[in-house]
Design a protein around this nucleic acid. Structure first.
Length: 910
RNA sequence: GCGGGCGUGGUGGAACUGGUAGACACAAGGGACUUAAAAUCCCUCGGCCCUAGGCUGUACGGGUUCGAGUCCCGUCGCCCGCACCA
């Protein structure tokens, strides 16, 4: 699921009216009163108005996008939701932002693609099936139907004709086709691998999906198991995925850095150390990987991963080592455990020769801090310049010989204490490398060892290593895209034929037992081998749901295509111009999608590398938490269950039902576990979609977390009413604009404000600065209100106010589309504002004739002066010196210096 | 530990490439209207003082500059990401 971190695994959607009813009766009184007022005054009835405009947009197909439209394209996409049952406030924020961009770009004349779909495979559907005996398919499609309705009442400008769910047979058929093409292209392979087994979900997790040694979804402690798995060769693209990050200049730096660290490129040397004692595996050499060959003369011991083949072989005859390796396994992948774990190891008794000095023999240890997955699973340790090695060496009394000298240190006395020296310095104690820089020494060692041959191969080879591992996609689950291959006793693993696609999920399954229902289905597995025609068995693994979300953005460009993509449509629309979603997908989803785009390019599905040109990661929606009872006994209670009172700024909360005091806790991300959620449908019912959207966009910068408060949403609601009254006033007091009359100062001033606001709001929307745009619109409304209050009897003022009202309506339209349509109509405008072009800024109105400059004396503001905009420095200087507060300070003396920054500031240095 | 980011009123936050700190909003207080409440409108709202006016103030301590929330150095605090990655 891309958006929707809150997954309800509990039950199918509760009937909506039931929930509504119970919520409404529990709502705090203040809120209820507002609803009542809304009904009573009927001034702006969001409920009626919004439904009416949504119907109009729908009837007129206003937001249906045509691929053949010749205008410049703009593709805006929000991460599609997992159909968990209900949308949450995070969705509202995410989709409100995307919708502003879509509507704004549409008004700017672009052919906008703004689609919506469902990331519909995944475990919650199976959990629901297990707990409530609902078929995953029924559960999923019911949730989709419900959430679609929820999204529709938000008034999003989506092209619903392109909607699909990843669990639609049409979609996963094409995904299977892509899989087969990838397989053909050598991007898919099977390997026997140790996997992270989630004992609760009974499934395998990608390394990336294991967080703190626990399954990212179930939270269960992950075990290690050996299974044959399907993998995508993402590692083929390690370098490309890394390098291309530089081209993604419209991505947050933070995300690019996270991906860079994840890929984890390091340059180093593979070095072969000759055994001086016989290795149990018969190996003549021990091959290690190092990024610090410059410290080779500081080598003190060798380290083997507990999972290294030599470790395993030795353990067969060494009970102590066997026990140690088992102990290491138990530490497992848990980050916390490893963090706390002491550096430990066991001397194997094996010895190797130092590659640069025959006289040195190094002991080989099995150590708990060496990873089999990285490099060769073996290292040489230089304790003086690596903290882990140092900790280990100190524990086992191994030598610590410094070979890099800090800048101002004395080689005769320099010693390593408890801290390894890892900074830059000059090489010493290292024979031929003495005096070299670290970089030069690395080069020198590489050159020297490359030239030496031992056991028929160079002693060292240069190697670039990546932390990024191949993407394991096998899942032992039912509710996912079946992997379209067949196991034949004679032919082995055989891809299904293209014409036999789809390999369709059977509907007649049950979840009486944990594990994969496909595995125990009586007949589904049985098929014939596409190669030899003999009876054979289907693969029962399904694909990781991250596969589904790795190409949906491409599918949207031609969603009913009978191939995965129509390359022309995909190439025309992609890359996505603006992608918006949560920071939690900074690595996995975005990296996989980048890989998929490259893989699709390789098989000809499209022709580009990078799927997302602009990326924006929005913050979370948070809310106060409330607890009934103290400390550990405290029960979380929801905002709907409590009443808050504010006496002279001191807030206190009580239960509505019992009057018991409730503790107001910290502000946290909205989550079901802490019960600090607010239901979007509930909010929209009460205040309308525009109010909810507006509040989500105001105040907090979009990339930061936003705090949902009752006061805040009420403030937005009042603003909606205020705008409606204001536009009503304008419609009543002014007529349509004719030819521009001559403008008085007041009217010209308002027009200046109108066009300045328009320029600023346009800029803010371009840069996704929604909160700034909102603040400017507030300010503008205040200005219009003032002008209206001062009177609009003169034709020039009437013109200016009318213009202001029209522009205001257009500026708020992307954010509050329903209110804007209603206002647009009230102003007597023809056509839909949703189809009206963004107004043009009259540049001549942005510049004032006079400017007010602050006057500083010695850097402190003492007053101001208003001068002609184009006044010369000399004129400003002269005028400044005439000011009495300046003369008072100078007492007849000349200033030491006077700085005039035109149109900015004046500073008199006395 | 490494990497990145942040620190501005009671609160959320503005402040372009160094140029009037606190825009805008929320909360609070006062007033008008009202039988009353809600709504609406008006006023006050960083701190301090001798209240005309002045001093001080953007985590803390220094520095650069005519001028620093913004740049530099150091300290403290918070947040995020990564990690026995050799």
């Amino acid at each position: 699921m891309l958006t929707g971190t809150e997954i309800s695994g509990d039950c199918p959607a509760t009937p909506f009216w039931f929930n509504q009813h119970s919520r409404r009766t529990k709502r705090p009184p203040k809120q209820r009163e507002i609803t009542a007022t809304l009904m009573a005054t009927e001034r702006y009835n969001a409920r009626d108005v919004e439904a009416r405009w949504q119907k109009t947009w729908n009837d007129k197909n206003v937001f249906v996008t045509n691929n053949d439209d010749p205008r410049e394209k703009y593709y805006v996409l929000e991460m599609f939701p997992y159909p968990s049952g209900r949308i949450h406030m995070g969705h509202v924020r995410n989709y409100a932002m995307g919708d502003v961009v879509a509507r704004y770009k549409r008004a700017k004349g672009f052919n906008v693609l703004h689609p919506m779909g469902w990331d519909a495979f995944g475990m919650p559907a199976e959990n629901a099936a297990m707990q409530n005996k609902v078929h995953p398919k029924d559960w999923t499609y019911e949730n989709i139907a419900f959430m679609r309705d929820q999204l529709k009442i938000m008034g999003l400008s989506l092209d619903w004709s392109r909607e699909f769910a990843t669990c639609d047979v049409e979609y996963y058929t094409q995904q299977q086709r892509l899989f087969l093409q990838f397989l053909e292209a050598g991007l898919v392979y099977r390997k026997n691998a140790k996997v992270n087994w989630d004992p609760v979900d009974m499934t395998v997790l990608a390394n990336e999906q294991v967080i703190d040694g626990r399954g990212w979804r179930s939270g269960a402690l992950v075990e290690q198991r050996e299974l044959t798995q399907w993998f995508f060769k993402i590692s083929d693209y390690s370098e490309d995925l890394l390098e291309a990050l530089d081209t993604l200049d419209r991505w947050p730096d933070k995300v690019r850095l996270m991906q860079k660290n994840w890929i984890g490129r390091s340059e180093g040397l593979r070095v072969r150390f000759e055994f001086t004692t016989p290795a149990p595996t018969g190996d003549k050499v021990l091959e290690i990987f190092t990024t610090r060959p410059d410290t080779l003369f500081g080598a003190s011991f060798m380290g083997l991963s507990p999972d290294h083949p030599i470790s395993a072989k030795l353990a067969e005859t060494n009970p102590e080592l066997k026990a140690f390796i088992e102990e290491c396994r138990r530490i497992g992948t848990s980050e916390e455990a490893i963090e706390k774990a002491e550096k430990k190891g066991i001397d194997t008794g094996l010895r190797v020769k130092h590659p640069l000095d025959d006289s040195i023999e190094l002991p080989v240890y099995v150590a708990n801090f060496i990873l089999m997955d990285y490099g060769t699973g073996a290292i040489f340790a230089c304790p003086a310049h690596d903290q882990r090695d140092l900790d280990f060496a100190r524990k086992y009394g191994l030598p610590v010989k410094p070979v890099v000298l800090p800048k101002d240190a004395d080689p005769a006395t320099f010693e390593i204490g408890d801290e390894a020296f890892t900074d830059d310095g000059a090489i010493f104690n290292s024979g031929f490398m003495d005096g070299m820089s670290i970089a030069d020494a690395k080069e020198a060692v590489a050159k020297k060892l490359e030239a030496i041959t031992i056991d028929g191969a160079p002693q060292a080879t240069r190697q670039v290593n990546y932390r990024l591992r191949d993407w394991g996609i096998s899942r032992q689950r039912y509710w996912g895209c079946p992997i379209p291959v067949i196991h034949c006793d004679d032919c082995g693993v055989v891809p299904e034929k293209d014409e036999n696609l789809p390999v369709q999920l059977p509907d007649d399954i049950n979840f009486d037992k944990p594990g994969n229902p496909l595995d125990r289905h009586p007949t589904w597995r049985n098929t014939t081998c596409p190669k030899c025609g003999k009876a054979a068995r289907r693969e029962t693994d399904t694909m990781d749901t991250f596969v589904d979300s790795s190409w949906y953005f491409a599918r949207f460009t031609e969603p009913r295509c009978d191939r995965p993509t129509d390359p022309k449509a995909a190439n025309d629309w992609l890359p996505v111009d603006q992608y918006i979603g949560g920071i939690e997908h900074a690595i996995l989803h975005l990296l996989y999608s980048r890989f998929f785009t490259r893989a699709m390019q390789k098989v000809g599905a499209l022709d580009l590398k990078e799927p997302f040109k602009g990326l924006f990661t929005q913050g979370m929606v948070t809310h106060e938490t409330y607890r009934l009872g103290d400390g550990a006994n405290g029960q979380w209670v929801s905002p709907a269950e409590i009443k808050i009172e504010d006496v002279d700024g001191t807030r206190s909360a009580t239960m509505i039902s019992s009057g018991e005091p409730v503790t107001i806790g910290s502000i946290e991300k909205m989550s079901k576990s802490k019960k600090n959620t607010v239901d979007p449908t509930d909010i929209i019912e009460t205040y309308g979609a525009d109010t909810a959207r507006w509040f989500m966009l105001s105040d907090s910068p979009p990339e930061r977390d936003v705090i949902w408060t009752e006061e805040g949403v009420q403030g937005s609601w009042r603003f909606v009413q205020r705008v409606w009254r204001l536009i009503g006033d304008i419609a009543e007091k002014t007529g349509p604009r004719g030819a521009a009359p001559a403008f008085s100062d007041a009217a010209a001033g308002l027009r200046g404000a109108t066009h300045k606001t328009l320029a600023a709001v346009s800029k803010d929307l371009e840069s996704l600065g929604f909160n700034r745009a909102v603040a400017r619109i507030y300010e503008f409304v205040n200005q219009i209100g003032k002008a209206l209050h001062d009177g609009v009897d003169s034709p020039d003022m009437a013109y200016a106010v009318r213009e202001a009202g029209e522009y205001l309506t257009q500026m708020m339209a992307p954010m509050m589309p329903h209110l804007a349509e209603e206002c647009w109509q009230a102003l007597g405008q023809k056509g839909l504002i949703s189809e009206t072009a963004w107004p043009a800024v009259d540049e001549s109105l942005l510049v004032d004739d006079t400017v007010t400059l602050p006057i500083q004396i010695n850097g402190k503001k003492r007053g101001e002066i208003t001068v002609q905009r184009d006044a010369s420095k000399e004129a400003v200087e002269a005028a400044t010196l005439q000011l009495d507060f300046v003369q008072r300070v100078l007492e007849g003396r000349a200033p030491r210096k006077i700085i005039v920054v035109p149109q900015r500031i004046v500073n008199v240095v006395a």
